[in-house]
Write a protein that binds this DNA or RNA. Structure first.
Lengths: 134, 134
DNA sequence: TCCAATTATGCAACATTGTTGCAAAAAGAA
DNA sequence: TTCTTTTTGCAACAATGTTGCATAATTGGA
């Protein structure tokens, strides 16, 4: 059985074409994707269905919002241990200044000191040159 | 002379009502403001003029983009040493989960390790409880 | 395999955010 | 004040995202 089908069934979601297509697009691209990227990649699929698909994948913890940049929202696959609604935390998202792609660096580490503000979650947006462009 | 007028003259910008109003709004609020916040605070000013005003203040290094969140962009005043176009870097932006305000923590410090990606600039978005809400 | 119940999709219409062109108004200098 | 330059405000447009609803697809059970 397809990997995407298993992912969906594990989350008690119906297996539909658009959900498989979207998940496959994420699996085939190491960088984060916006709805606009997905429309370009997958051909002329319905905007509304795409937004609703992303919302479902968000709700079930299959993807997370990587970055909002220039009125576009970028999404990336979650790690397998990402539980519903408690995700999108402690991520480093990296935007390459050369190829403009957004990468989700799950393994990065960080130390913060925030002067009296009680931090629950954080999200680091870095930019520079990615592994391919440097 | 008003503080806002001095700020504008220092940057060789004309002193206009909307620019003073916007700068004063930032000075009177310790948290970051979106165009929508500014419209609410300052009454029914023209949307286009507001966007153009923010763009000018951005270009001249008087404000920077603090955060894009839920299709809204939040802006905050720059420090006095913020030079044109070379700003919005190395900031920590903190969203309070209780009052929803976005704060710009200029003084925070951070240490990052980003596995082979060459970081030029970064921007940390943290959330939790702010000084007033905790 | 077919049926029925449930869920998802696609379309139209709408809402919000942001942009562009251009004429009228305001700011600054002489 | 007067003239030049810049800014504002309006209209129209563009892009992103949302809602309602009828149609189509998925899934579990006969």
């Amino acid at each position: 059985m397809d990997e995407t089908k298993e992912l969906l069934k594990k989350k008690e979601l119906r297996v539909t074409q658009i959900r498989c297509q979207v998940l496959e697009a994420f699996q085939e691209n190491e960088h984060a994707l916006s709805p606009q990227d997905l429309q370009a990649l997958l051909g002329g699929l319905d905007r509304v269905s795409l937004y609703r698909t992303l919302q479902v994948l968000l709700d079930k913890g299959l993807v997370h919002k990587a970055l909002e940049k220039n009125t576009q929202t970028y999404y990336a696959l979650c790690d397998s241990d990402c539980s519903d609604h408690a995700h999108s935390h402690q991520h480093v998202h990296f935007t390459c200044e050369s190829c403009e792609k957004v990468y989700c660096l799950e393994q990065a580490s960080i130390q913060v000191d925030t002067k009296g503000y009680q931090v629950h979650t954080w999200n680091l947006n870095a930019s520079g040159l990615c592994v391919n462009c440097r």
